[in-house]
């Protein structure tokens, strides 16, 4: 380290380095690598299964899956829709539950707090790393889907749900939209996980609790009598993902979902902040 390094630099540099080290830790964990591998396997399995069961367009079934034989990019669309209700929340819960509770259980939290970094910034960095993780898991599914799709199937124009066609570029644009939307919805789950993680020193408990919240939401959405509260549940908005495959694009559902996700992030983010900044760190 050079002696002439300006004193104002560390504030940002420490933050950036801290974030990078968080992300690095995420990526080095064997468990997280396994999650990524499992998620990447989903589109591969879908692609191979469709390839094996259809012969040159014959026997193609309807719906999203049937579209795969026409355009490989649909492997990515289908895979995202398959993983978003349970698999993705699970992948988020495992990592989000770990954030604070994991450090506490290892006894590293107090060392972390000994670094001249405020607790607020520590929490923000942890959350930023979660944002990266959400984007990473959705991108992995989409990317694996596109790769297997291009290998196994033709890729020309993309037939949308409305029966009209988009160019390949338009299709890729819609896929990017789906990835971003899915990542934002998962960030809402991550915020819940972050808050729960500040409540306990047992990371497994935080993971299980976060996953339970996500599953309970799924169950509530399946009960029509609870219609009144459905708009307030994350799970009710997950499949709005398909609105990106309509022509013209249907914005209202995506907007509602995005607003709800931001609401969850703000509420649970502030809850986590209130808890973490007032908490006695004893381990």
């Amino acid at each position: 380290m050079s002696v002439a390094e300006p004193l104002t630099k560390p504030v940002l540099a420490v933050g950036g380095r801290f974030l990078l080290s968080e992300i690095g830790m995420q990526l080095r964990r064997r468990r997280n690598q396994l999650i990524l591998a499992v998620l990447a396997a989903v589109p591969v399995i879908i692609g191979i299964a469709v390839k094996l069961t259809t012969h040159d367009g014959a026997g193609a079934t309807g719906g999203l899956i049937g579209n795969i034989t026409n355009n490989g990019i649909f492997v990515a669309f289908t895979a995202l829709i398959v993983v978003i209700p349970i698999f993705l929340p699970m992948a988020v819960a495992v990592v989000a539950g770990e954030t604070v509770a994991g450090e506490a259980s290892l006894g590293t939290l107090r060392y972390l707090l000994a670094v001249p970094v405020g607790r607020t910034r520590l929490l923000l960095t942890k959350f930023a790393a979660m944002g990266f993780w959400c984007l990473l898991i959705t991108s992995v599914v989409a990317l694996a889907g596109v790769i297997i799709g291009v290998i196994l199937f033709p890729s020309a124009h993309v037939t949308l749900l409305s029966g009209t066609q988009a160019t390949l570029l338009g299709g890729v644009g819609r896929l990017v939209g789906m990835v971003l939307y899915a990542a934002l919805m998962m960030l809402a789950v991550a915020a819940i996980g972050l808050f729960i993680s500040t409540l306990t020193e047992v990371p497994i408990a935080a993971m299980a609790a976060t996953l339970t919240v996500a599953i309970v939401m799924q169950v509530l959405v399946a009960v029509p009598q609870l219609h009144a509260i459905h708009p307030w549940l994350i799970s009710d908005h997950l499949l709005n993902l398909a609105d990106l495959l309509r022509d013209p694009l249907r914005v209202s559902g995506l907007r509602d979902g995005a607003l709800l996700a931001v609401g969850y992030v703000v509420v649970f983010g502030s809850l986590a902040w209130a808890r973490f900044t007032t908490k006695d760190v004893t381990s």
Binding site: A60, T69, N70, A156, H157, T159, G163, T164, Q165
Partner: peptide
């Protein structure tokens, strides 16, 4: 306007 997609 509607043109049937190729695999329809």
């Amino acid at each position: 306007t509607f043109n049937p997609p190729p695999n329809a």
